[in-house]
Every structure is written in structure tokens, then in C-alpha cells.
């Protein structure tokens, strides 16, 4: 990462600022301020802030971390935005992060991790956590196509990307709950979906944040090779939680990954070299 150069001149971005959209941010803050870094959870495509509000927000707060979850535009309770691009989503994350009282830790899940990776170039996060990151590669796309052709193929033509229960959750999750979660899934902007494959790679992060990558080897969306690749990008190895589906924050054993994240943060990771 450190070999890439910092970009100072961004004439296009200055000349064409992103149009603001109303954002939903759900928050659970600990009753007692303990001076811990706020966490900003960024859900992946189709998910809203609700996905983190189920378990992770209150769990993080119970361990003393102010926890916030954002719905990207067009998702959850945020303003509808069918024409959203990865850049609009990045804008949402950076805005939400800069709006927090203190320098935040960004936690991105799925394609939200790709958005976080972009946001890291525009906001000096205290640290970043990429959960089952879909950083976007043809390999991931191939896997999704193989595992769930009916849900994936329409996305190629700008339709909705439909992830099914088997991809998102392990068998341990009760059927009723899984059905309820899947019913709440929305869709991302079609341009953003395409950009996962065709968009430019994230620029180098500013502020030297340390980055933790975690996921499940049994994830049916992100193959473990992609996990390893993602972690290597940030000079580390992924933390693995076998037996879980793609949606680690909703699956039956949701407690393990979030505890691992919080433990890692409590060790106060030093800024990455470079």
C-alpha cells in the first residue's frame, strides 16, 4: 500500500462535489463514557444499519465502545438513491465518520468493506476492520455466479443482486430469523454494483490506520482465497470464524467475531508502518 502515491490534486472531485443525501445513522452509546474510540459500522450492499442494530451495536456499547451504524444511501432508512455510485457511498461514510465526536474506527462488511477501503483514503480512521470483505474481483463474482446464478445474473444487467439464505447464514440460524433477515434486504445502485468489478482500486489510506480482516472460511460469498488476498493487502492475515455464513453480524454465533474485533481494538493497535 505504501508504495502508492498520495493524491493531492482532485480537480474533478472539487468541481463536482457529491450531492448530499439524508443518512440514517443508528447509535448505541455506553452509559458511561470510557474514552474508547467510536465505531462506525458500514453494512454491505442490500443491508442497512439495521443489520448491525440487531446484535453488534448494543454488544459493542456494553463493552464501552460508542457504536454507530450507517445506512448507505438507498439502503435502510436513508434517502433512496438509485443512481448511487461507489463514490456516493464513500461520501456517506466519510461524512458520517467526520460527524462523530472523535476519530472513529471504520468497520465495513461485505461490499461495505470496499466502501470503507475507499473512505480510508479520504478520512484518517483510527483503525479499520474489514469483515468478510467483498473488495470486488472477477473471482468473487465467479463464485457468486456459481453458487447462486439466479440471484447473481440479473445484477450483471443492472438488476438486483439477490443473495440467498444459504450464502448469508449458517444452518445454525433458525429458519424464521433467516427468512426475516433476507426479507429486509434491499438493493444497491446498479452503477455501484458494476463498479465493484470495474471501478478503480482504492487509493492509499491516509493517517496510517492498522487494518484487521476477518471472515469465515465457509462464507459462500467471499472465498477464503479472497479473504487472504484482502488481508495481505494490509500486511496481515485474516481472522477466521469457521462454520459461519457471510453475514457474521446476524448469524447464530454473532458474538465471536465482534468480541474478536473489540479485543483487537482494546489492544490499541499501533499505526501501520509507512
Amino acid at each position: 500500500m505504501s508504495a502508492e502515491r498520495v493524491r493531492i490534486v482532485r480537480s474533478w472531485e472539487w468541481a463536482r462535489p457529491e450531492r448530499p443525501a439524508r443518512r440514517e445513522v443508528l447509535a448505541v452509546v455506553p452509559e458511561l463514557e470510557e474514552g474508547k474510540r467510536p465505531l462506525l459500522f458500514v453494512p454491505g450492499f442490500g443491508h442497512g444499519a439495521w443489520a448491525f442494530a440487531e446484535h453488534w451495536l448494543s454488544h459493542a456499547a456494553s463493552r464501552g465502545f460508542p457504536a454507530y451504524a450507517l445506512s448507505l444511501r438507498g439502503h435502510g432508512g436513508s434517502e433512496p438513491a438509485p443512481a448511487a455510485t461507489l463514490r456516493s457511498y464513500t461520501h456517506d461514510v466519510v461524512q458520517a465518520a467526520a460527524g462523530l465526536p472523535r476519530q472513529a474506527v471504520l468497520v465495513g462488511h461485505g461490499a461495505g468493506a470496499r466502501v470503507v477501503a475507499h473512505a480510508l483514503a479520504r478520512y484518517p480512521a483510527r483503525a479499520a476492520v474489514l469483515v468478510a470483505p467483498v473488495l470486488g474481483s472477477w473471482g468473487t463474482f465467479g463464485t457468486a455466479l456459481r453458487r447462486n446464478p439466479v440471484g447473481t445474473l440479473p445484477a450483471v444487467f443492472g438488476g438486483r443482486l439477490r443473495l440467498n439464505r444459504r450464502q448469508l447464514f449458517s444452518r445454525e440460524l433458525p429458519d424464521g430469523e433467516a427468512r426475516r433477515y433476507v426479507a429486509r434486504l434491499g438493493r444497491a445502485g446498479r452503477r455501484a454494483q458494476w463498479q465493484l468489478l470495474t471501478g478503480g482500486q482504492p487509493e492509499p489510506a491516509v493517517g496510517r490506520p492498522s487494518v484487521l480482516v476477518l471472515g469465515s472460511p465457509d462464507d459462500r460469498v467471499v472465498p477464503s482465497a479472497a479473504l487472504t488476498r484482502a488481508a495481505r493487502r494490509y500486511a496481515s492475515a485474516p481472522l477466521l470464524f469457521p462454520g459461519m455464513g457471510h453475514d457474521l453480524m446476524l448469524d447464530a454465533r454473532w458474538r465471536e467475531p465482534i468480541d474478536a474485533i473489540l479485543d483487537w481494538l482494546e489492544k490499541d493497535p499501533a499505526p501501520a508502518a509507512g
Binding site: I8, R10, E13, W14, A15, P17, E18, P20, H91, V94, Q95, A98, G99, R122, Y123, P124, V206, G207
Partner: peptide, 15 residues
């Protein structure tokens, strides 16, 4: 205007 004035890594609120 705002995009030219804010710190590049800490944007002003977009509203």
C-alpha cells in the same frame, strides 16, 4: 466554496 475550503481528510458537513 466548501470542496475547496475544507481539509481534504475532514470534510465539512454536506448539509
Amino acid at each position: 466554496s466548501r470542496p475547496f475550503t475544507q481539509f481534504p481528510d475532514f470534510p465539512m458537513p454536506d448539509d
